[in-house]
Design a binder for these strands. Sequence first.
DNA 1: CTCTCTCTATGCGTGTGCTGATCGTCGAAG
DNA 2: CTTCGACGATCAGCACACGCATAGAGAGAG
Lengths: 222, 222
Amino acid sequence: MRVLIVEDEVRLAASVARGLQADGIYADLAHDGRDGLWRAREGNLDAIVLDIMLPGMNGYDMCRTLRAEEIWTPILLLTAKGGEFDEVEGLELGADDYLRKPFSHAVLSARLRALARRGKSPRPTSLEVGDLELDPGTRHCSRRGKKITLTPREYSVLEVLMRRSPEVLTKDEILLSAWGMDFEGDPNIVEVYIGYLRRKIDKPFAVNSVRTVRGAGYQVVA
Amino acid sequence: MRVLIVEDEVRLAASVARGLQADGIYADLAHDGRDGLWRAREGNLDAIVLDIMLPGMNGYDMCRTLRAEEIWTPILLLTAKGGEFDEVEGLELGADDYLRKPFSHAVLSARLRALARRGKSPRPTSLEVGDLELDPGTRHCSRRGKKITLTPREYSVLEVLMRRSPEVLTKDEILLSAWGMDFEGDPNIVEVYIGYLRRKIDKPFAVNSVRTVRGAGYQVVA
DNA sequence: CTCTCTCTATGCGTGTGCTGATCGTCGAAG
DNA sequence: CTTCGACGATCAGCACACGCATAGAGAGAG
């Protein structure tokens, strides 16, 4: 589990980070609003701990900005003031919880876990072309329920073909997607891998879903 | 929006109910634990406000009972004591939030709205993949009832793999989640920790739940 | 100091990727 | 219809990167 702590008091931030680490929660640190916003956009975070009083950009603004950008990572606000309006306002702006300073590490980690539990991201959907299925999450490939084992390179080639099915892709497009732009070998490699794929996903099932379009490229059809 | 207030001090309960009503939140009242439990089972509630000190049945027990019955209506605990352990304990038992007395109506309604927005999320208290269990609260891991001791780093790696099981995670994703984005060492460390995990959770039980997907990453399966 | 945990560094085995040559096939022009 | 050229398919075999195991150094806590 991974969280971002946005807090300008460096010593406090470091101490909180150590405390969480002892509970198996790894914490990245940002010391001002701008930096925090940047990392929040980048990262693959389970939650954000956000101080309200910050140099650069305050916690409210950061919270509002993230939500406006459709980033729904759970946010826990840290409030220093005694007033209640901070907190109400924060929740209305899209924060998910708040904690009043000073707080104990035990409470913070319990709250963070509770937040992270809710914030599950939806599963990526699988690709289907006819009865051929490809799940990018597990990298499983199957036809009519029968599992097909693919090597990494075979998987890359099939993925791009299925993603854009039934488009015809040129060899160059396939090279770019499956090998990357820094490939410097024999472009004949694409033909070789098309061959591997046909041997695994077409021949055993007596179908012809990987089609050659002479002079143009390849496509996958139902 | 409709909430249930379980609180034995009649005057306080009535005053809270009036305050919420002014914010468009309709409140049912129960004055002891048994009555509260009954109404919580019946009703079509958006949230429950639960005092800890109650005649009949205390707040902890009520909370635990509801969760055991698979009723996941969000619960906000009211704590009167100063100690923090009440609160941590409450959250571990399945409450979703807490508020320390005395509190203001504005804060209570903001919190209730936040809870209702999240909705009832079936909340697995532990992660399970096949017969392998991992409890994020206590950081205990076990298979077939036998306890397995994990170091913090091992725990982090296993947690992210189980949370997203049966997805295949790349080494980079694992590094990001378990080490953080500022890790600058040898990425081979992931392989090392996968090895440690296998030695602890797979080999003693003669299973193979931590799978390598060559060229892609790792997954945990049943 | 000792013990635990984390990480680096090494060597090894195997599956995978790629090359290069040869064989097959399609299509257009005579 | 036949022929020829260009494009695509297939195959064998080698090199190597990937993943695994293990040992040990370094850091930190008790």
